[in-house]
Design a protein around this nucleic acid. Structure first.
Length: 573
DNA sequence: GCCGTTTTCGGCCCGACTGTTTTCAGTCG
């Protein structure tokens, strides 16, 4: 069982326990443990094999450690199976409907016999829900709409897609009369790879007016609720937007509060409580009620004797301790990037010529770039064989002479073939300045064979970067089954960098994997995999994920000057 | 169920909105 599987089972145990009206603090403990497991760099199964004591992990005590061991051994969680005998497992999805929590789900089950989403829908459609105590016609209608929404919009939005929504929305809010400031918060501000809903924060006197203005904007499909300080709407396409309006003196505290993460906030509050203070979205207050800070984030952090924490780090992964001890890393920034090491041109499946790509990179202020078209195995992309590569080299000779402002590294994204062989002969590999390798076929090999295949590929002496190492496509396809630890070890042993593929549909490696790679001492290369000029701008998505993994600039290959990059590519360190 | 230079027992974050209620529980973030 992978950590994802283990976390899912613990989450279900939490949900069912809650429905069974178990001790709420136990429920919370299960949820916390699930989160710990999900965010762990190493697999629980591996830790157990090495004899590591799981109770060392935050939120995991003797009981949950035992449950984890059982799950790894047997693939089952007996407590969950036992609970499922008494509470229908389908009630979990009932609680996922907007406006239905554990209490109401339990009522629906006990009074109407509702056991899953479909039965809830039937009960609501025949009017039975409205008859229940504590429910009414409005609740019933809301539940029906909620079921519909749940079915349509269960998926989270990719960060790149969210950007396209957020920017114009913020501009329109800023243009409203009385709006002094409008910012995005939530997971969007923390730059998580996907966004479940959108939190916007506005400074204005008249909150109701701003909320009404939002509700009236084009693109708003439904108003979910509105009040003096809060308005929630659902946009066409399904994204839920929660708008909060605060006075200026509370802006910093509110921005922190609504940026989260939830666990980060809880830890911050506890830091305040430890001093006998109180922290909420309006400010930081002394026991007597005197306000200590609130208008500005830095002021609130400072009052708690903490350095300001970049939003990407606010995931309760040790950032508060680091901020207290002044050892937060100086995170890599887009401006640190000196070149893009993964892109395509019309020589394979790119849409722009080499010349256009070079001009575009020069405009972005890069000192160097790597042209990495596909190799021949990818027929549909027009991948290059040795003969075509020879012709490309001739063109590159001419073009590079024209553009002395930027250095073009001659590269190829070489396909990893069935048994880990490379899709280009050694003589030609040696002539390339940079060799990326990646998997584009046989995604379904079993874990051992897939791992062996990739390990063999990165062990070839001419290989420099493992591109999109897991092959996942966000919201579409899981990565191939791979023992990443073994792959990382092989990369480290062979002087190979691992890529953060910055294409917003990939973001591969993800933040957690990068953290693991970095702790091993691996070098990370952030590449856009651009197939057209515009996609070169995806670099920032890759940088953001690197920041979420605590990376400083020096951990990223393409922040280095060209001579150092060349030395790395020559495997000289 | 977890956790502890405040504690090994007794805590565990907190405010807004909704719909139903006629004073508040449930839900959400």
């Amino acid at each position: 069982m992978t950590n994802v599987d283990l976390a899912r089972l613990l989450g279900r145990l939490a949900a069912l326990s809650e429905l069974a009206e178990d001790n709420p603090f136990r429920v919370r403990a299960y949820r916390r443990a699930a989160r710990t497991v999900l965010e762990l760099e190493e697999q629980i199964a591996d830790l157990l094999e090495r004899g590591v004591d799981l109770t060392e992990l935050p939120g995991i005590g003797k009981d949950i450690a035992r449950k984890l061991a059982t799950m790894v051994e047997s693939g089952r969680l007996p407590d969950l199976d036992a609970l499922a005998e008494t509470v229908p497992i389908g009630l979990i999805e009932v609680t996922e409907v907007q406006g239905v929590g554990p209490k109401r789900a339990r009522t629906l089950w006990q009074a109407l016999g509702v056991r899953d989403l479909t039965e809830l829908q039937r009960a609501a459609e025949r009017g039975a829900v409205a008859e229940l105590d504590g429910f009414g016609a409005a609740s019933q209608a809301k539940i029906l709409a909620g079921i519909e929404a749940h079915r349509r919009h269960a998926r989270r939005l990719r960060l790149g897609d969210a950007d396209a929504v957020v920017r114009p929305l913020l501009e329109r809010l800023r243009a409203l009369p009385g709006v002094q400031r409008a910012e995005a918060a939530g997971s969007y501000r923390r730059r998580r790879e996907t966004v479940g809903d959108l939190d916007l924060l506005v400074v204005a006197e008249d909150g109701r007016a701003v909320g009404e203005a939002l509700a009236a904007m084009t693109g708003v499909e439904e108003v979910l609720g509105s009040g003096d300080t809060r308005t929630s709407v659902r946009l066409q396409g399904g994204l839920q937007v929660d708008l909060r309006v605060v006075p200026p003196e509370s802006f910093g505290a509110a921005w922190m509060y609504f940026t989260g993460s939830k666990d980060h906030n809880v830890a911050l509050r506890q830091a305040a409580v430890g001093r006998g203070w109180r922290l909420n979205e309006y400010g930081l207050y002394e026991g007597g009620g005197r306000r200590l800070a609130g208008a500005d984030e830095r002021e609130v952090f400072a009052a708690l004797e903490l350095d300001w924490i970049p939003p990407e780090l606010r995931e309760h992964r040790g950032e508060i301790e680091a901020a207290r001890e002044h050892r937060l890393p100086a995170l890599v920034a887009v401006d640190d990037i000196r070149g893009d090491l993964h892109m395509h041109s019309t020589w394979s499946d790119g849409k722009n010529s080499v010349r256009e790509m070079m001009e575009a990179c020069e405009r972005r202020g890069y000192a160097y770039m790597a042209l990495t078209d596909h190799s021949q195995a990818l027929r549909m992309t027009g991948g290059l064989d040795a003969e075509k590569l020879a012709r490309q080299f001739e063109e590159l000779d001419a073009i590079t002479a024209e553009r002395p402002g930027i250095t073009l590294l001659r590269g190829l994204e070489v396909d990893i073939l069935k048994e880990g062989e490379l899709d280009l002969d050694d003589a030609w590999l040696a002539r390339l300045d940079i060799v990326l390798v990646s998997v584009h076929s046989l995604f379904d090999l079993d874990r051992d064979r897939q791992t062996e295949r990739v390990v063999r590929a990165v062990s070839h002496p001419e290989v420099n970067v493992l591109a999109h190492p897991t092959g996942r496509l966000l919201g579409e396809r899981d990565g191939y089954d791979l023992d990443l630890d073994a792959v990382f070890d092989a990369c480290l042993a062979n002087g190979v960098a691992v890529e953060i593929n910055a294409a917003p549909e990939r973001l591969d490696l993800n933040d957690v994997h990068v953290l693991a790679a970095r702790h091993r001492g691996l070098i990370v290369s952030i590449g856009t995999d651009a197939h057209r000029v515009r996609q070169l701008d995806s670099m920032r998505f890759g940088v953001e994920q690197a920041r979420r993994a605590w990376l400083p600039a020096e951990a990223v290959l393409n922040t280095r000057p060209l001579d150092e990059v060349r030395r790395f590519l020559a495997k000289g360190g």
